[in-house]
Computed example of a mutant assay.
Amino acid sequence: MLVKFCGATTESEVAAVATAGADLVGLWYAVPGGPAELAAGRAVQLCAAARETGRAEPVLVTFSHDTEDLLAVVEAGRVPWVQLHGFQAPSVVRRLRRDGPPGLRIVKVLHVDAAGRCLEGALAGAYEKAGADCVLYDAVGADGRIGSTARSLDPAAVTALAGRTGLPFLLAGGLHAQNRAAFEAVVAHPRFLGIDVDSAARGPGGLLDARAASAVAHAWRAGTAAAPGTAA
């Protein structure tokens, strides 16, 4: 199971989630108004910090449709993962696959509303054909907001949606150390790849925190809930 913690803005946060067992750390780039938004140069610096941990690989998380700009940051930061979190067209995936470095892994987020409807459902197959390596199911907020909504998806809706492509998938949306059991059917799916967590990995000051992140990672990997506020 891959564990990704998203929205690092400092070297200390990158180090904290690596210590907590993260495989991936999300760095926000071209996410207008996002609380963890990074300038290109800062994203490149934190990519280097992630590599220095020897554990957590950086993921460039973006709403951008500008493939030329994204490829420039990928090259400068030696970025191994790009997560397309907006409503990018399949052509963006195709261009990144064609012109990106060998081995670049492309994640396309598919947004799911409260009724279990995937907003990009009609394009799921096109993303796969364009070269996406995996998809990530994330919840749309009640106000239509996407990203870091802290709203959980219906596990049955996730497994149903997963059957519409042949791609591995990650799960996001309100995941924490106490709700692992609710997603047993999702975790058991043969193409389940891992989880993406933001809010539940943050400490009292709002930054990504080793203790909080460790509790999430342990609970999901071990299949047991950790008590609130405890470390793995």
Rank of each mutant, 00 (worst) to 15 (best):
A8D: 09
V14L: 02
V14T: 04
T19V: 12
A20S: 08
L24C: 03
G26R: 15
L27A: 05
Y29R: 12
G34S: 13
A43F: 11
L46G: 05
A48C: 03
L60N: 13
V61G: 00
T62V: 09
H65T: 14
D66P: 05
T67W: 05
V73W: 15
E75D: 14
H85L: 00
V93L: 08
R94T: 08
P102E: 13
K108W: 05
K108V: 00
C118E: 14
L119G: 03
A122Y: 01
K129V: 10
A130H: 08
L136Y: 13
A139Q: 04
A139R: 12
I146M: 08
R151W: 06
R151M: 02
L153G: 01
D154C: 04
T159D: 01
A160R: 15
A162W: 07
A162P: 07
G166K: 04
L167F: 07
L167S: 04
L170Y: 11
L171F: 06
A172L: 08
N179L: 03
N179K: 10
A188F: 07
P190D: 02
P190Y: 07
G194Y: 14
A201K: 11
R202V: 06
P204M: 10
G205I: 04
V216F: 08
H218P: 00
R221Y: 03
R221W: 05
P228Q: 09
